[in-house]
Design a protein around this nucleic acid. Structure first.
Lengths: 206, 206
DNA sequence: GCATGGATTTGAACAACGTTCATGTGGGAG
DNA sequence: CTCCCACATGAACGTTGTTCAAATCCATGC
């Protein structure tokens, strides 16, 4: 394959991803249609299956981009914060802010269900696992006595907890809550976690 | 409408719900097909739209049943426990156990997405809100100083957190964890919450 | 320039889906 | 017994994602 062919292929992939992302932003991932995307991308319907495996594959790649932006937002929010509690709060609040500012893309990332039988590809699972870094590091400052496995385990649990609070609220499963109210609630939640996690005063690390 | 007609109508609804539930259990809600359900129920395809509004409506009614069983399991788990911490742990562990024992039905209840534009009916939202009772009561024992609104707010947050831990784990978003490991992790999480929530010793309730 | 051949692009065709609707039917009212 | 209407039926419809034979493109060799 020549360089120009690679460019053409890459350009089509790019146009498809841009079109799919725009449609997800405006109408949600569940309303994404192969015909709409390819019309927006300016190519024939069948071309989708030259550039990607199928429509789910397109969504996965859009999700990968969204994840990159989420990672950047979390890094930006907690960089330079030495205090573990502040870092944890900043990361949790940045997570919430990103979800609120990118509802549809965030829903596609965490709620979209692929066609039956499909599993998320390993490379995308690995990308998602890197979100835990933003929790592991503050947690290490809070509990220097925990080993790597314990840190990772607790970070995963804490991520699930914060994600659950955010998603339960975004789905409006129970009564709605204002954006600011939710932020202060998550701040309070992080404080409770920190208060219950720190090494008890006067009890030396064993 | 005569009584016999009501019986006939009710019997068909019942057969449809039973068939849909069985198919969700064995293949998941996303693989539910109107034709399969009606074949199992022993009626013509179009009959579905006499008994229910549409296929989503069938899923909602299956979900309502599942929710009833979940409610019963939670009530059974925490009844008679006076200690708030124990009651909270019991409810959280029962929630996890139910999810693990009823994977597909649980996923349908909390992850199924209705056709675009549809909202969950109010009566089903109200049913789901009753789950919070199992958290509000122990929380009231832990913090008698909190008023009704605060209790409800914190209960909703805590529900979202526990739900998030369970669902993150069930989706195998990160590395998998054994069933027992997850249970002990949730137990530890509840302990952390309780430790960070109780009225600080020596500080009188104001 | 031009012909060649393999790769890519195309869009008609296909199968599967939820939903609708004209038609058939069964059972209670008069 | 006859009417009548509410429910049952399944063929038909529109919309999907996906496939594939045919058309087209483009780098290469002469």
């Amino acid at each position: 394959m020549t360089e120009k062919q690679i460019d053409r292929r890459g350009a089509l992939r790019e146009r498809i991803l841009a079109a799919a992302e725009a449609r997800i932003v405006s109408s949600g991932a569940s309303a994404l249609r192969a015909r709409d995307v390819m019309a927006d991308a300016g190519a024939a319907l069948g071309g989708l299956y030259n550039a990607f495996e199928d429509l789910d594959d397109v969504v996965i790649h859009v999700n990968s981009r969204t994840l990159g932006r989420l990672q950047a937002a979390l890094t930006r929010a907690s960089q330079g914060l030495e205090n573990p509690t502040e870092a944890l709060r900043a990361a949790a609040l940045a997570y919430l802010a990103f979800a609120q500012a990118n509802r549809s893309l965030w829903s596609a990332l965490f709620e979209y269900r692929y066609a039956s039988g499909r599993r998320m590809p390993d490379w995308h699972l690995a990308e998602q696992a890197e979100l835990l870094v933003h929790i592991v590091e503050p947690l290490r400052g809070l509990r220097p006595d925990w080993d790597r496995d314990t840190l990772l385990l607790r970070a995963r649990t804490l991520f699930g907890a914060i994600h659950g609070i955010v998603s339960t609220s975004m789905e409006e499963r129970f009564v709605g809550l204002s954006a600011e109210g939710l932020a202060s609630e998550i701040g309070a939640f992080v404080d409770v976690i920190v208060a219950g996690t720190v090494v008890p005063a006067g009890r030396p690390i064993s």
